[in-house]
Design a protein around this nucleic acid. Structure first.
Length: 581
RNA sequence: GGUCCCAUAGCUCAGCUGGAUAGAGCGCACGCCUCCGAAGCGUGAGGUCACAGGUUCGAAUCCUGUUGGGACCGCCA
């Protein structure tokens, strides 16, 4: 149930009736007719631009069309008042029963209130995190992880069939570096002094891996040439890192459906197959690229490479897929990986990447466009940097100095709920401040707290009612007479609730889960406002001593608020609390 | 040089497939607890939506250009 689409349907029905009767020319395109909440509440609950959109094609004056349409709309019982305003807006005020019904509907539908069929069961693959398996996840990954997981949950709620996927970069040079680094730790575990030169990973997190190796191999690998241990140690170390990364993700409440190994693309013909697919479309050729304009790399010299004609699908230059020495570039397995996703039958692909990968968006889209013949859209969501603050000072991370902050550090200090919510309080392409002190503050400026507080207040009121011996179960609340919910502050809360299904669709259409977080803040604000009004007007308090019927109707409204907050927090992956502590 | 992202109140930021008088928090000024949790609520001041053109009934939103900030730019992933 989405009130806005319901009313839009009413508007469209009325328009087609007018066309049938000749009041409007037949066959008008009504695609641009919108029904939205007006910015100014004085304009009513719903406004439509129908008259202005149709005036030109219909060859009439906006106000004339508006008057005729308004007359029809006013016949509907849901609509209390219609007026034509401004250049031809039709403003509608809905009757109180509409909002009361919304409250009842929210309670009866429960966690499914707001679910949408926007996705129509289409299969979407959300790839996120995909950090190199060479160390623990850090704060930057945390944002992508939370964003991707919340986006996946949002799309599920919006009617898609969602797969959460992690691409393991275990096929490149960096896992060889990992293996050598682990070998050093292994030697260390065997009592040797070792030095970590440039190009190795010095992090302490590899110490236990070295110890585990020593436990398994003893000193059998000491002094042996690299060729004898590289393959085994690479697998061993990669497994250990992925084990750690999975645990990191689990600490945030994230569970992937698929871990896809880059290595599985090599030596299996998968890369060749994808490239042949492109070659068959005449998109692969041997050639020499122009040097980059502006600052030219020192060692640049023209070389012939194998190139993907990505310019045929919207890229700015063609991209190398094979180096001059005959090895694949990293882009080749990326192509094969996306080819694989397309072959698995997804209708929509989403890649969540760090902002520093912005330069790869066009070539990835070109590859997916070419491989799927334009059938499968790829949406790339870039997550901007997270700026850390400690004690009011910006906190600079440096891997070299070993003071980089890990996902685990953050979750251990502030908890998964606060971490997740806060990561979604900015849109993905805006930089985000993360202040270890501020995110734990319990004030209005901290949205996590503010939303949780609203939820806790409802639970508190419910407890109080129960202590008074009242049945406030959902069935009792939904069955209550809600016709007494008529105060402007109460209706304001109900109106906000009615926006929930619409918010889900907007957020789902734009792939922007942060909209859910902002909506929840707005809803909490309306609720707190009503709650505090009870200080001055006792008639607005949720629990009315000695008046069970009124208490039930007011608690129904409050319960509907928690239904939506729970559902919204559920999408964000945050647990609602029943009391603050 | 090129590509992508960003520019909205003193500060941090929202702003719906283009809608009416552009919103919130913080900060500032002033109010509200013998009262369901005041960890909250209310009122007020505060804006050339970076700039200049264009598209149209209508632009913070779409297009072009300019300025300023960030990211990236063959044989690293």
């Amino acid at each position: 149930m989405n009130l806005f689409t319901d009313i839009r349907a009413l508007v469209l029905d009325s328009l087609s009736a007018m066309m049938d009767e000749g009041a409007l020319p037949a066959g008008l395109d009504t695609g641009n007719v919108a029904v939205e909440p007006p910015r100014d509440p004085a304009h009513g609950d719903m406004a439509t631009n129908a008259a202005m959109v149709l005036a030109k094609p219909a060859g009439g004056k906006p106000r004339d069309i508006a008057e005729a349409l308004a007359a029809r709309l006013s016949a509907d019982t849901r609509i209390a008042r219609v007026d034509v305003a401004g250049p031809g807006f039709i403003n509608m005020a809905l009757s109180d029963t509409v909002w009361q019904d919304t409250v009842r509907h929210a309670i009866l539908t429960g966690p499914d209130f707001g679910r949408s069929d926007l996705g129509q069961g289409k299969r979407v693959n959300v790839e996120f995190v995909s950090a190199n398996p060479t160390g623990p996840l850090h704060v930057g990954h945390t944002r992508g992880a939370v964003f991707g997981d919340a986006l996946a949950a949002l799309l599920d709620f919006a009617g898609y069939e969602v797969t959460r996927e992690y691409y393991i970069n275990d096929g490149g040079a960096q896992v060889d570096v990992l293996a050598r680094s682990v070998y050093l730790r292994y030697l260390e575990a065997n009592g040797q002094e070792v030095a970590f030169e440039d190009g190795t990973y010095p992090g302490n997190y590899l110490i236990p891996v070295g110890e585990a190796l020593a436990a398994q191999y003893g000193d059998a690998l000491v002094g042996k040439p690299e060729a004898e241990w590289l393959d085994d140690l690479r697998d061993f170390a990669t497994d250990a890192m992925m084990h750690m990364i999975r645990a990191d993700l689990a600490a945030l409440g994230i569970e992937m459906d698929v871990f896809f190994s880059e290595k599985s693309l090599y030596g299996t013909g998968r890369i060749e197959e994808a490239i042949e697919n492109l070659r068959a479309r005449d998109l692969i050729y041997r050639g020499v690229l122009e040097p980059p304009k502006g600052k030219r790399p020192e060692d640049w010299e023209p070389r012939e490479q194998t190139l993907f004609r990505s310019t045929a699908h919207g890229d700015d230059v063609d991209r190398p897929i094979m180096k001059s020495d005959g090895a694949w570039t990293y882009f080749a397995p990326d192509i094969a990986y996306h080819h694989d996703k397309i072959e698995r039958g997804f209708d929509l692909l989403i890649d969540v990447l760090g902002a520093d990968h912005g330069g790869y968006v066009k070539r990835l889209k070109a590859a997916v466009s070419a491989l799927s013949e334009g059938r499968v859209p790829l949406d790339v969501k870039l997550c901007q940097l997270v700026k850390l603050w400690k004690n009011g000072e910006p906190f600079k991370m440096s891997k070299r100095a070993g003071n980089f902050v890990t996902l685990r550090d953050v979750v251990d200090q502030v908890g998964p709920d606060v971490t997740r919510f806060h990561m979604l309080t900015r849109k993905n392409d805006a930089p985000l401040d993360f202040d270890f002190a501020k995110v734990l503050e319990q004030t209005r400026e901290n949205p996590v707290f503010y939303v949780q507080y609203a939820h806790a207040r409802v639970c508190s009121a419910q407890r109080k009612a129960r202590e008074a011996g009242l049945n406030v179960d959902d069935a009792a609340l939904a069955g209550a007479d809600l016709s007494g919910l008529t105060h402007p502050s109460e209706l304001a809360v109900a109106r906000k609730l009615a926006e929930w299904p619409r918010m889900v669709e907007i957020a789902g259409r734009t792939n922007e889960p942060h909209r859910i977080a902002f909506y929840l803040y707005d809803l909490a604000s309306e609720f707190h406002s009503l709650w505090n009004r009870g200080n001055e007007e006792p008639a607005l308090r949720f629990v009315q001593d000695g008046d069970e019927a009124t208490t039930r109707s007011k608690l129904a409204l409050a319960r509907a608020v928690t239904v939506v907050i729970s559902a919204g927090l559920g999408i964000l992956g945050v647990t609602p609390v029943e009391e603050m502590r």
